[in-house]
Design a protein around this nucleic acid. Structure first.
Ligand code: MN
Ligand code: MN
Ligand code: ZN
Ligand code: ZN
Lengths: 147, 147
DNA sequence: TTTGTATTAGGAATAATTCCTAACAACCGA
DNA sequence: TCGGTTGTTAGGAATTATTCCTAATACAAA
């Protein structure tokens, strides 16, 4: 899991020098936390986690850093409803299942879709940059304790 | 296109009497506008359109009505990023392409996915209520006029 | 019609995200 | 190693989509 961060960190380092960005402590620690997170955290959640390592960090910095990471292709926002944006440090092609009850988000792969070819009406209308499946449902935990 | 509304209207009428809801002028007109819209309008957009028919309608009523329609299964929110929620009066299973530049949203069907079977890890984790593909890209119109 | 109650209009409140700016700290070259 | 340049941050204010509050309204059952 730390190896995973190292790889991303080197990527960030390279992109920073390329684009004239600075490799700050804040960016490093947000990346570390995002790389190890498996729950697609919100900015607020990430903020409280990173605060353990960088007590003086501000919420705005977390938002700004996530924006920067998305521009650099190091992070993505998961397209789910809900008032809080959910972020993903894994930018490899994969899909998401979200529980509409508790908001939990899980990854899954579906090769038949990822490797399939989009209908021509889609590729004809736009230059595709990302394709993903969003499954909504109610998870087992919420199923048991329904009010 | 009006036939389409009639069908939905009858459905609303039935659901209202079932659930003790009232068939108000506002609900009727929001449904009419949503049924004829093909652009997945935001609440604000829908508000300005419905205002032509119901000048005194409030934005809150549009939001509340859309919430009611979603509860009743007459409308859905399209899971796209952006500050404005985008709504869909078509609840039949279909997918969406969104231009990350101008925000345009188009429908498409992809039977290989819709009729395909989800991986067991998904159906095992939750009770699935909805599956859809979200394609992001840059549309032809935006491609030409890029800044 | 009458009456009970769900619904609305309008404005206030909430809350996620962004903006503003002085202080700070990477990073480059000497 | 040491300044100087300038991108970045912390903190709080501002913005804005959406929701809440409440008196007035208008469905719908009888
Ligand atoms: Mn993911
Ligand atoms: Mn649609
Ligand atoms: Zn759940
Ligand atoms: Zn476009």
């Amino acid at each position: 899991m730390e190896q995973h961060f190292q790889k991303k960190f080197n990527h960030l380092k390279e992109l920073c020098s390329q684009k004239g960005l600075r490799l700050t402590h804040q960016r490093t620690e947000v990346l570390r936390e995002l790389a190890s997170a498996k729950d697609h955290p919100s900015a607020e959640t990430l903020y409280s986690r990173v605060k353990g390592r960088v007590p003086a960090i501000s919420l705005d910095t977390v938002y700004r850093t996530l924006g920067t990471f998305m521009d650099l292709g190091l992070a993505a926002k998961v397209p789910v409803d809900g008032d809080l944006g959910r972020f993903d440090g894994d930018v490899s092609p994969h899909h998401h299942v979200v529980c509409v009850c508790c908001g939990a988000i899980r990854d899954f792969i579906w090769d038949e879709v990822s490797c399939g070819e989009l209908p021509a009406e889609v590729t004809d209308w736009c230059h595709v940059t990302d394709t993903q499946v969003i499954v909504r449902g109610i998870c087992r935990d919420c199923k048991g304790s329904d009010s």
